[in-house]
Amino acid sequence: MSNTRPAVAPGFGGLLVRAGVCAYVGALVALPLAALLAEGLGQGVRALWDAVSAPVAAEALRLTLTTAAIMALVNAVMGTATAWVLARYDFPGRGLLSALVDLPFAIPTLVTGVMLVLLFGPQSSLGGWFAAHGFPIAFAAPSIVLALLFITVPFVVRAVEPVLMEQDPAEEEAARTLGASTFTVFWRVLLPPLWPSLLSGTIRSYARALGEFGSIVVVSGNIPHRTLTAPIYVFGEIESGRSEVAAAISVVLLAVALGLTFGARAIERLTGTARA
């Protein structure tokens, strides 16, 4: 994909399209954001701090940020490996693997939660085995990481894969012929061009995970201080009529996600892999 901007359509028609698109995206994305900021900051920064620093809220935010971080780390490693396999090998079932990678985007997240409970719930043999060995998964923190991993599978794979496809496998082969170990090949040949897309894919998966609700509400157990994540805390505050607290926590989540999204764009722009 080239880095030059598309030619601008001349005349009034082009202007109309641009204005229309700006108005559309503005109304669809910017307006709701503005409404949230107005509600979340409406009571002043002090009230926002009080809402965020309440013990249950702070703990929920911490849990959300850390489980998302664990997910992002695993995703960065396994996503890169998956992309590498997809880009370098042709094998029976490759098409199926590629389709499986995309599948999580098509599955309602609530269904993801239900699947995980069926698989890892204490009544299932697998879940029962883990629980009996002192490592319960469903209704415990590991289920949150698992749910996040499931819903974010495509992010890193699909960010890294096109870069790998463009890379000439001959470079890897040359390095190997010259006696480089597998690790050296990976670290010195394969990885350098991947960094930008790997980082931006990882960051986007992290930002996506911050707001995950549907799967976690089913699978985590939602116990304050233990398994209650920030989005579910926000939901509870809305349900109990404390929308200003809900908005305050949402503003924090939004700020982290926005910061990360702009960070990802900055990385892409600096390294010339920008999509726009």
Partner: peptide, 11 residues
Amino acid sequence: KPLLHRSPIVV
């Protein structure tokens, strides 16, 4: 290149 650029009618 987006097709739309050439035809505002589509939009």
